[in-house]
Nucleic acid binder design. Structure first.
Length: 596
RNA sequence: GCGCCUGUAGCUCAGUUGGAUAGAGCAUCUGCCUUCUAAGCAGAGGGUCGUGGGUUCGAUUCCCGCCAGGCGCACCA
């Protein structure tokens, strides 16, 4: 067990000994913000004292009196208003690194309570190009899935593709009246997008291009499709097939894999019974011809997602599950989707990665489902992991259905092209094929990292230079640190087999070595925090700091020219840093290269 | 109108149970490649954490008011 976990465990035991009824799960040990205070600290005693109106320093003294962490730490210091400062004994750091080198851990522990987690992300629409609006869900969702897997959970990824709905009425009209076959053969998605836009413009009563006849035709084609008309079904399947080719290409480039891709249409057959059940149970009722879920009054109005305040009064804010015309909408499909996932995979959590504008929808969705199936949802955590809007340089949101969006494929092309320019400048001697291969990893890494680095709830300002930057706090900086380590191993002709079998103890002498080693130990803390809050940006920050520590070490501590014992220790530090960098980047879906 | 979110350095943003001197990247300026990859390192300047109160030993963090901006509020998803 890692030193900070040992300390935390002992501290919790000591706190419980002093305050038997205290909830000690919040008694945590953190790395010190400043090394001068020590290696780890806890501010938890002050919080406990606060809650009980005790003197924090006295409580700290009482806890410390019951605390024995002598195998790992120097005597514990009580500082300030009641901080506990822990300083690792000489040798503990080196011993911990040694254990990692032997393969006992990589500074993190897999969970003792594995859970099944369904991760729902990406969810592109059929017949539309994937664009920047899909990047966050795809990259964030993939990263979370990788993170849960690394920590030992069973993960089921499911791509809830938009393959059903009113847009197909318009697409069918477009296909039948204005399809350009040659254009379809050249670029199917572009042609589908063209006909969709053209027809859509005629179906929006707010637009001057509105055409009542086209609008009615679209409605009629949709009804035919929903009723199983063979021709429309065949065309619909063809559109899905053409779209899937595009999805596969993008996901292939991004290295994103799904265990399942059960689109909206997969749930069609369940919907009538679902609505009937909700009606029969009194959860839903008819309103203005539509069927809706209303508040059951179980929650206070402020917390009730089915109520809204208008003009000082609480009014109904229902969730629609069947339209007046008999059609279903995404609330209905999403309810069926939860039911299917619970039946099929028995997960302990379902995580939805979508933008923040859907918060109300998910609040209603989860609330409705819990009313529908209270027996199923007790142990299941339904989580909406939302992220901010994508903004243009003008600060306004990029609209999905108007104006030109940056296509994801073009973005990835541009990223690789820019990276190729830089790789060629830095390393002109390499054969072009190798430079291309490196540029692919660097370019895609830069895009993913730029997307994962900000707090997900911040709005995302789309800016080519920022997303494709290769300097500063970017993936290339981390990949560069990794490549420099591999370069040391190459220059020193250190075989891989020699790295895993350390001889002698690990000695840490210089400030740069110690800082690097200390930081390595925090990997698991960061992984746990990122998983707990669904925030891979914690991992980005950690890895950037790790690479920074390594860069300082690299500048100040020669490895290959060091004396034998020192050289062995430094090689070990290099090896462990490389392993943590590679693992951390892999969680972010970012590859490494041995040379760049 | 109601709800959610945002406001931190010139710009873009971090900031882990409230905690110790508020951080990073970019940009600007100054140094460092005959030594393991300079996509780097060292250093400098740059802040009323939107604003006014409150709680606290202690508030960027929690609570309330206000200002500014974004998003959402039943037959799109």
């Amino acid at each position: 067990m890692l030193p900070h976990k040992q300390i935390e465990l002992r501290l919790q035991q000591a706190a419980r000994a002093v305050l038997p009824d205290a909830d000690v799960t919040a008694v945590l040990v953190r790395p010190c913000p400043d090394p001068k205070f020590g290696d780890y600290q806890s501010a938890a005693i002050m919080a406990l004292a606060k809650a009980r109106k005790l003197n924090p320093r006295q409580l700290a003294a009482d806890v410390v009196a019951r605390l024995d962490v002598s195998p790992w730490c120097e005597p514990v210091e009580i500082a300030g208003a009641g901080f506990l400062n822990f300083r690792l004994r000489p040798g503990v750091l080196g011993e911990t690194l040694h254990a990692a080198l032997r393969g006992e851990h990589l500074f993190f522990a897999t969970t003792t309570q594995p859970r099944t987690v369904v991760v729902d992300f990406s969810s592109p629409n059929v017949a539309k190009p994937m664009h920047v609006g899909h990047i966050r869900s795809t990259i964030l969702g993939d990263s979370l899935a990788r993170l849960f897997r690394l920590l030992g959970h069973r993960v089921v990824t499911d791509n809830h593709i938009g393959d059903w709905g009113t847009q197909f009425g318009m697409l069918l009209v477009g296909w039948k009246t204005m399809l350009d076959r040659a254009a379809l053969d050249r670029d199917a998605i572009a042609e589908l997008e063209r006909i969709y836009r053209a027809i859509n413009a005629q179906c929006d009563p707010a637009k001057p291009t509105y055409n009542l006849a086209t609008h009615e035709a679209a409605r009629a084609e949709l009804v035919k499709l929903q009723q199983g008309d063979p021709e429309n079904l065949a065309l619909w399947r063809e559109m899905i097939r053409l779209s899937q080719i595009q999805f596969d290409a993008i996901y292939g480039r991004l290295g994103v894999k799904f265990d399942h891709a059960l689109g909206e249409s997969f749930y069609n057959l369940r919907l009538p019974a679902l609505v009937a059940e909700l009606m029969a149970q009194g959860i839903a009722r008819e309103s203005d011809g539509a069927k809706c879920v209303f508040s059951d009054g179980a929650l206070p109005p402020r917390e009730d997602p089915f109520l809204i305040q208008r003009d000082g009064e609480w009014q109904a804010n229902p969730q629609l599950i069947q339209k007046r015309d008999g059609g279903y909408n995404y609330a209905t499909t999403d309810l069926a989707t939860i039911a299917h996932r619970l039946e099929t995979w028995q997960p302990q959590a379902i995580v939805y990665v979508t933008d923040g504008r859907q918060q109300l929808h998910f609040q209603q969705l989860f609330a409705t489902f819990r009313r529908w199936h209270p027996e199923l949802t007790g142990p299941v955590k339904l989580a909406h992991v939302w992220f901010g809007s994508i903004l243009g340089d003008d600060g306004k949101p990029l609209k999905t259905r108007s104006g030109e969006n940056v296509k994801l494929a073009d973005l990835l092309d541009e990223a690789e092209a820019r990276a190729f320019t830089v790789v060629s400048e830095k390393n002109a001697a390499l054969p072009e094929a190798e430079r291309r291969a490196i540029a692919r990893v660097i370019g895609l890494g830069a895009v993913k990292y730029a997307d994962l680095l900000p707090n997900r709830q911040s709005d995302y300002v789309f800016n080519w230079d920022k997303i494709l930057a290769l300097n500063g706090n970017t993936a290339p900086y981390l990949q560069y640190a990794y490549a420099r380590i591999q370069s040391i191993f190459r220059k020193g002709e250190i075989p891989k087999s020699a790295l895993g079998q350390p001889s002698g103890e690990i000695r840490l002498a210089t400030p740069e070595e110690i800082a690097l080693a200390r930081h390595l130990l925090n990997f698991g803390l960061v992984l746990d925090a990122a998983a707990e809050e669904y925030r891979p940006n914690y991992i980005c920050t950690y890895l950037f700091e790790l690479a920074s520590h390594f860069s300082r070490f690299f500048e100040n501590c020669p490895v290959l020219k060091a004396e034998p014992a020192e050289r062995a220790s430094r090689l070990a530090l290099c090896d462990l840093t490389a392993r943590v960098l590679a693992h951390g980047l892999d969680v972010l879906g970012i590859e490494t290269v041995p040379n760049m």
